[in-house]
């Protein structure tokens, strides 16, 4: 898969413009960076990845100093990594899981850790954290002891398990 070929495939599909950067590691493996100006266009890129039988490897999110969030999807098509970067000011992105099921966990994790909601995601359940912990825990600092004690001081987990067993 060539970056140019993928670029040609998405060029006409993206409505609000984007920046394309190319990158190469010391072993000669190329990767592409696509920086979107409108987060809505992530769906068009995901459709192009699907058309090439690619997959979503994972997605990274982080909080910027001004309070906005950056989300980067990492796609793979035949060994080529395509990084799709988008910004969100209102803590929401448009879920690509309905197009690429491989993005399922990645988007759920972003919702859980940063409170960024993937709109249209089919799964509303928590991924790793218990419901007693607020969404967006990585947006603030929570000490491990508080996190662990917060869980173990209550019987929430045990009661939930017990309820299931009794049913």
């Amino acid at each position: 898969m060539k970056i140019e070929e993928f670029n040609n495939a998405i060029k006409s599909k993206i409505s609000s413009g984007y920046e394309l950067k190319e990158d190469k590691d010391s072993y000669g493996n190329a990767s592409a960076w696509i920086i979107l100006s409108n987060k809505r266009d992530s769906e068009s890129v995901a459709k192009a990845v699907k058309a090439y039988k690619g997959r979503c490897i994972v997605a990274t999110a982080y909080k910027n100093i001004d309070g906005t969030h950056t989300v980067i999807y990492h796609f793979d098509i035949e060994g080529l990594i395509i990084n799709l970067q988008l910004e969100t000011e209102d803590q929401s992105i448009f879920s690509i899981t309905p197009i690429l099921p491989s993005a399922n966990w990645a988007e759920r994790e972003i919702r859980e850790m940063y409170g960024v909601e993937p709109i249209g995601h089919p799964d509303k359940d928590r991924l790793f954290l218990d419901y007693s912990l607020a969404k967006g825990v990585l947006n603030e600092y929570i000490s491990l002891s508080k996190m662990q004690l917060g869980v173990s001081e209550t019987d929430v987990l045990w009661e939930n398990v017990n309820k299931e067993v009794k049913q």
Binding site: V58, T60, A106
Partner: peptide
């Protein structure tokens, strides 16, 4: 690091 993220094989194999 400002941000470090890693994805292990089981993360996607799980589903």
């Amino acid at each position: 690091p400002v941000r470090m993220k890693w994805k292990v094989p089981t993360f996607t194999n799980w589903e």
